[in-house]
Amino acid sequence: MKKLIVLIILISSFANAQFYEIDFEVQPQIRLTAKAYEAINNHYKDKKDREKAIESIEKIDTLFYKFSYNNELSQSAIIEKIDNSQNYNDDRIQISPKIGGKSYVNYKEMLFYTEKDFNDKAINVYDSVYKINFVDTGKTKTILGIETKEAKGKYKDVDIIAWYAPSIPYNYSPDIYYGTKGLILELHYMYILNEAEVLISWISTKKKELKKEPIFKNNKILQTVSLSELTEMYNKNAENFKEIMNQGVDKK
């Protein structure tokens, strides 16, 4: 009888599990501080060049992601959109969320994994995600028809605000900061980069309930390295290229 009760509970829990695919707009912004403006003025002596630089900072692309999750993992995958605008500017600044382009998070390991190209070869790269000690503020709002609560936290010099759904009992996030008492449906974090304030905002725009739990597969055949190891590999490549180029220069 006890086994039957446990089985019923497990079936009921699985049936009530809510798995969604959620579309996010990721809106990066840069707020120039007084020191940042001073640095720009010192770097660009010509007024038109300064104005062009400031304009490129103020017009950062919005990115689009699909986020999904199961009982152990979540995945954030960028949606590539073609920009046919005649005003496309190759010099504009690109700011991306810390999770990268297409990654999945293993919350038990507290790591995210993503595939990157190195020397025309795909490799698996991993780095840390961070469980934040979020504190509820008492504020609430409805997102995509779901009641959410606001919580704030901090990681080193990064200030974080999350709106999460207590009714969806997964402490997951579309980016590297997680740990709320429910699924994060909106996320904002701010940090300082080169004397400027960088703000990344994840705004959910659409949700689709999935009929079954999604499965995420890691390509275990690929070489797996940490992000710091990949950085060293890139640096070594650059040094080797520099040596090759120097060897081709006639010394007099």
Score class of each variant (00 low, 15 high):
D175F: 07
D159K: 13
D120Q: 10
K252Y: 13
E80K: 13
K181F: 11
Y170G: 02
I40M: 07
Y113Q: 09
T148W: 02
I221F: 11
Y69T: 01
T180Q: 00
Y170V: 11
Y189T: 00
V135Q: 14
K35H: 04
G182W: 05
D159L: 13
K212A: 10
Q27S: 12
N237F: 06
F216Q: 04
H43C: 05
E109S: 12
K131M: 11
I160A: 04
N89D: 15
I8C: 15
K141H: 06
V125R: 03
E25C: 03
E21Q: 15
Y65T: 03
I176N: 05
E58D: 10
A165S: 14
N218R: 13
K139N: 15
A15R: 03
I192P: 00
L10D: 02
K81F: 06
L73P: 00
K141F: 03
E197L: 11
F134Y: 10
E21K: 15
G248I: 05
Q75L: 12
K47H: 08
F216P: 06
I95C: 10
N246Q: 13
K45G: 09
E21D: 10
A15E: 08
E213I: 04
L199F: 11
Y170R: 08
Y113A: 07
L7W: 06
V135R: 12
K47C: 00
N218W: 00
V198R: 04
H43F: 14
P174W: 10
F112Y: 15
G182N: 01
A15N: 10
W202D: 00
N41Y: 13
I11H: 00
Y126R: 07
I78Y: 09
S76D: 05
I60M: 05
Y69G: 00
L185T: 05
V135A: 13
K236W: 03
L210V: 08
T33A: 08
K152Q: 12
K81Q: 12
K207E: 06
L4V: 13
I11K: 04
M190C: 07
L144S: 03
I30L: 05
K2N: 13
